[in-house]
């Protein structure tokens, strides 16, 4: 029998997320969705589009602007046999509801000696670049990843977004699912074309906690997550023209963190650049470098990081664009390593 190759079906991350949630809702009636404007509107960032129409207002619930209430409610519902998928519209808003997240959602499993589970997904948008200023543009990856008890994942393309959302919903643990606004494929936020990739129709899981080599190379490892991966890929293409073979490693998950994949890649290349749109200090970039250093990986040059400076994200385009990571900054980091 000849195998029929599946027709290519390119989806945005927004559509891939909505499809993943819909498929899980069809097969598991415990899955339901809550959040602001996630019903008829389909989510400000499009990732619940179509769900309200298919599943109705009982399972797809627009909430009041009461994050403490509905995220806290998700914790309670999750421990009572449901599988809530809740949306915190912008991750920046965690400030009004973090207790429900890090003291309850993230700790109840442990404090109950594993006897109580909290199988919920908290999906939330991250990132800037479109002049929305510092209450609507942050990534705060590390703020979440620092606190034990919740998985923290952030896909860089639609294939991973679908598989990781399905894995997140099925996971018996709480998962924070971060999606970067510029990767959503919503035209009004600009569109990163590399994030729009083939997505199989069938349901599938992408395991949480597994990094992936997005582009193999031998001279330098560029580690990133979500938008950082795309900055890395663009830099790698430019470096290739200069005869440098850069490997791009997409972490995909911050918790669990695939330290082995990082160590393996840097062992091969001997050089490491870590890219993150989250703040520079006390962040993911430092964690990745520490991982390599602690493992004693032989390095040809001191590792470099390209991250957001330690400032609130400014509104005005000249300042914001200057502060963001960029392929140019990655290449400058590489050139600095060459000097050593």
């Amino acid at each position: 029998m000849t195998q029929v190759k599946e027709k290519e079906r390119k989806l945005t991350i927004a559509r891939a997320m909505a499809e993943a949630i819909a498929q899980e809702m069809r097969t598991d009636e415990k899955v339901f969705v809550m959040g602001e404007d996630i019903g008829e509107l389909g989510g400000v960032f499009g990732n619940t589009r179509g769900l309200y129409k298919e599943f109705g207002p009982v399972r797809v619930r627009d909430t009041p602007i009461s994050e403490t209430a509905f995220i806290g409610a998700a914790v309670g519902a999750a421990s009572d046999g449901m599988k809530p998928v809740v949306e915190l519209m912008f991750v920046d808003f965690f400030g009004v509801c973090f207790d429900a997240i890090y003291n309850m959602m993230a700790k109840n499993t442990y404090f109950s000696g594993g006897n109580v589970t909290v199988p919920m997904v908290l999906m939330t948008s991250t990132g800037g670049g479109y002049s929305d200023a510092g209450q609507h543009s942050q990534c705060v990856h590390a703020t979440f990843a620092h606190l034990p008890g919740m998985k923290v994942v952030a896909p860089s393309n639609a294939y991973d977004a679908k598989g990781m959302m399905i894995a997140a919903i099925r996971d018996p643990n709480p998962v924070v699912f971060m999606f970067h606004k510029a990767l959503q494929g919503m035209g009004w936020l600009g569109t990163e074309k590399d994030a729009i990739v083939h997505v199989p129709e069938a349901d599938y899981e992408v395991p949480l906690g597994k990094a992936v080599v997005t582009r193999p190379g031998t001279d330098v490892t560029i580690v990133g997550i979500t938008s950082g991966v795309h900055y890395g890929l663009k830099a790698a293409r430019i470096l290739e023209e200069q005869g440098v073979s850069a490997e791009v490693l997409d972490l995909r998950s911050l918790v669990p963190l695939d330290r082995e994949a990082v160590i393996e890649s840097v062992t091969k290349t001997g050089r490491l650049i870590v890219v993150d749109e989250d703040y520079h200090s006390y962040g993911m970039t430092g964690e990745i470098i520490a991982t390599v250093v602690e493992a004693g990986v032989p390095l040809k040059a001191p590792p470099q990081r390209v991250a957001y400076p330690d400032i609130p994200i400014p509104f005005t385009p000249p300042m914001e664009q200057w502060a963001l990571p960029s392929p140019e900054k990655i290449i400058a980091a590489f050139n600095k390593m060459k000097e050593v």
């Binding site: 602007i65 200023a133 005005t316």
Partner: peptide
């Protein structure tokens, strides 16, 4: 987002601060 703005362009439309008349605002509901 201009340098002559009340906050030199750092705040933008959701972050208007004018201490001369004791006005401020925030984008967080």
């Amino acid at each position: 987002g201009k340098t002559t703005g009340l906050s030199g362009g750092r705040g933008g439309h959701m972050h208007i601060f004018d201490p001369a008349v004791n006005f401020s605002c925030s984008g967080i509901i």
